[in-house]
Structure formats: C-alpha cells, structure tokens
Amino acid sequence: MADVILLVDRLMKSFGGLRATNDLSLEVQRGECHAIIGPNGAGKTTFISQLQGMLAPDSGTITLNGRDITGEPAHRRARLGIARSFQITSLVPDFSVLDHAALAVQARSGHSFRFWKNARRDPALVAPAQEAVETVGLASRAKTLARDLSHGEARQLELAIAIAQQPKLLLLDEPMAGMGRKDGVAMTELLAQLKKDYSIILIEHDMQAVFSLADRISVLVAGHIIKTGAPEVIRTDPDVRAAYLGH
C-alpha cells in the first residue's frame, strides 16, 4: 500500500446508455509495468482518457501519489507527472521530431511567456529534447518534420514526447498499433528499457509483448476489471480465458 503511485476507485463513465467505465478500481505500484488487456470495446481508451484528464468521469476518484486529481484538468495532470502516448498518433505536422520533444521539455520547465529568445536555439530545451529523441532511437530523424515520418517512427516520437515530459506515470495506449512485426519487436525492446525507469500503464493488443513486458496484468471487460494478477496467473485463469482469450 505504501508505494502505490496510482489509485483508481470505483470509476464510472457512461455515454448515453452505454457504461464505458463501470465501477472500475485499480491500483498501480510505483515502478511496475501494469498492462490492461481486454476485448475491443472494453473501454480501455476511455479509461486512459479519464486518467489523462481529457474525459471527466461521472463518479469515482483518481489518486496520483496520494493526491486526488479527479477534478484536475489534463494540462495540470501532465504537470503533476502523467504522460500519455496516443493510440492514434497526435503530432504537429510541421514541427520536427526535435521540436516535439522540445515542446514537452518547455512545458515542464515553467510557463512559456518568454517572447524573445529563439526556442529552437535554446540549449536548455534542445539538449534534453535531443536526449529523449536518442532514447527512442530517432536521433537520425531529429530534424525531420512529423508529416514526413513513417508510421513506426511517429509511434516512436509519441514515446519520445512522453519521456521528454519526465513523467512519474506513463500511459501507453497501444504503442504498437499498426506496426509491422519488425517495428513491433524493436518497440518491445524499447519498452523493456523504459520500464526500468518509469511506472507504466500499458494498453496493447500484441499479447506476446504484453506477457513479456508486464509485471501485472488487469483484464478489462465491459468497463470493469474482472481480474488482476501476474502474467502467468492471468494466462491460466479460467474466467479470463472465457471472457477474453476466447477458449
């Protein structure tokens, strides 16, 4: 209990008659990689959006590091240490790879009401941004505009931005979505590196990646977590198999 970074308590969210998040409770330990799996439409992205603050829950609470953040808007949660990589890449088309990371560095280093100095030539922004870009393996593409990136590279950039925020908790929404086999393997290796330094909530359909990366797995079905446990427990759990793995 002492080292819980994120505590979600009885979260509810409905869209019309649809209960997208239904009495969802979850506990994430500091330093763990916690995967959330579930069939399509289980409400995974809806849940992540509520954690990030883009969506407000109808009821329930979210506590980060012992602080209730349920009422905090998304931008303030980012400052408090939540970083999200989007399932559908969300980039600025005419910003370079480095610009994106620098923007994240800029965002965490106080307000941006600085009008005179050229941001692209500010070592205080460029150096940490460069580091984040190198971490995800995009160093050779640092000056490339986002619109010219391949799909895999755009996914890597999503991660670089999140890392540049120096978050306490990383929300990764299908980081491998739409990736080929080769890129997927590279991404898994990258995530294996990152999980040493960050607490992570990982949503992913690639089961091989999930079972190799996750310390614990929660299974989300119809907006409710039906089981949480170590990968080997989840793999053999009869309820999980029935609900999700389809056996």
């Binding site: 808007p73 980012a78 400052r79 970083a83 965002a107 925020q165």
Partner: peptide, 8 residues
Amino acid sequence: TRVIAVGV
C-alpha cells in the same frame, strides 16, 4: 490536444 497533453 498535443499541447494540453504535454501540460500547457
């Protein structure tokens, strides 16, 4: 969305 997500 991107700008808000990084904290601004």
